[in-house]
Computed example of a mutant assay.
Amino acid sequence: MSKRAFGLVDLILHPLVIRRWRRTASAADQVSLGMLRRIRLRALELRQALDRIIFVANGRLALPLIGSNTFPKPLHSDWSWRPQLWRGPIFPPGRAAVESKSDFGDEVTIFHDCRISELTVRQMRNTREEDLAPYGLRLDVFKFDGSFLSLVIELPDSAMRGLTRKHLLRLNAVIETEKKLEIFARVNIQHGPNTEQMVRELPLDDKEFSIDFDLAYTKLNEKRVERAWVDLIFEGPEMNQVMLRDVNFSRRPRAEV
């Protein structure tokens, strides 16, 4: 973008453009329907550009810094990662009546079995002093006629490199709910034709927590690890709001006894 894009000419033209749109808005209930259609088309084109600018500007000008991968990690961690959805802006930032298998960013997918979806999902900008993740995710659940709702996070290839049964996989999260809600985390690791699974219930009374999954209790074939993902499972989410302000992962080798 040219450095002159908002120079002297813009200072002169901007008030004129604003006045013109204000006059157009005042006269909208008096012009012909044909003219009103043309005005609406121009207004929609303008709004699309403005919405995009405001969305990007809000993200870049607020704290914490976009792209931040900063969070506490256990001593001797050899891998850590924060998914894209909590690290930077996605577009579009939200959806209503979310269908099952809807993707949010490159790594997060929503699954449910509702006949009629009354689930709204929106990425939100974290601006509180205590927030470390640049973004969060808000789920608004109204009527829920399904039997399950889960958020699936696909772990990157780097999580599988060098993964052994001596590792502890840690999930850190900051989750706020409008009312108490049972949430389970399930780690899935595919190795060859088999998939190892470990399930932990998240603490109901803590907004910020860390839980570890000890791979020593699995039958993991270290030479055939192909894929790993984590399910966050919400039990009975009807008429509730869930805000996942941060979700991140790390791993470390278990201390030898």
Rank of each mutant, 00 (worst) to 15 (best):
Asn58Gln: 14
Thr109Ser: 08
Asp205Ile: 01
Trp229His: 13
Ile90Asn: 05
Arg95Trp: 09
Gly7Ser: 06
Asp103Trp: 11
Gly59Arg: 08
Arg115Ile: 06
Asn172Val: 06
Glu178Gly: 06
Leu168Ser: 08
Leu155Glu: 07
Leu181His: 03
Arg128His: 10
Ile175Arg: 04
Lys143Trp: 10
Arg52Tyr: 14
Arg170Asn: 15
Phe209Thr: 00
Leu65Gln: 15
Arg115Met: 07
Ala5Gln: 11
Leu65Cys: 12
Val9Cys: 08
Arg22Lys: 11
Val230Asp: 01
Val98Ile: 03
Pro237Arg: 07
Leu215Pro: 02
Glu107His: 10
Arg254Trp: 03
Leu33Glu: 15
Arg60Ala: 11
Lys219Cys: 12
Asp106Glu: 13
Arg38Phe: 12
Phe6Trp: 12
Leu137Lys: 05
Asp29Pro: 00
Glu45Leu: 13
Val121Ala: 09
Leu119Pro: 02
Val141Arg: 00
Phe234Gln: 02
Phe111Gln: 00
Val17Ala: 13
Phe213Asn: 00
Pro203Trp: 04
Ser102Arg: 08
Ala97Leu: 10
Leu16Met: 14
Leu215Phe: 05
Glu208Gly: 07
Tyr135Cys: 07
Leu155Asp: 04
Leu36Arg: 13
Gly162Val: 06
Met198Ala: 03
Arg95Met: 14
Gly146Lys: 01
Asn221Gln: 12
Asn240Glu: 05
Trp81Pro: 02
Phe111Asp: 00
Gly162Lys: 07
Asn58Val: 03
Asp106Gln: 12
Pro74Leu: 08
Lys166Arg: 15
Ser2Pro: 08
Leu36Ser: 08
Ala28Ser: 14
Glu196Asn: 03
His112Arg: 01
Glu222Trp: 06
Arg115Gln: 10
Val9Ser: 11
Arg20Lys: 09
Ala28Ile: 15
Trp79Tyr: 14
Pro92Asp: 03
Glu182Ile: 09
Gly94Val: 06
Glu222Cys: 07
Leu36Met: 11
Ser26His: 13
Leu65Thr: 15
Asn58Ala: 09
Val56Cys: 06
Ser250Phe: 04
Gly192Trp: 06
Ile233Gly: 01
Lys179Tyr: 04
Met198Pro: 00
Asn194Lys: 13
Asn69Tyr: 07
Glu178Gln: 12
Gly34Val: 04
Trp81Thr: 02
Gly94Trp: 08
Tyr135Arg: 07
Ile175Thr: 05
Pro74Thr: 09
Ala216Phe: 12
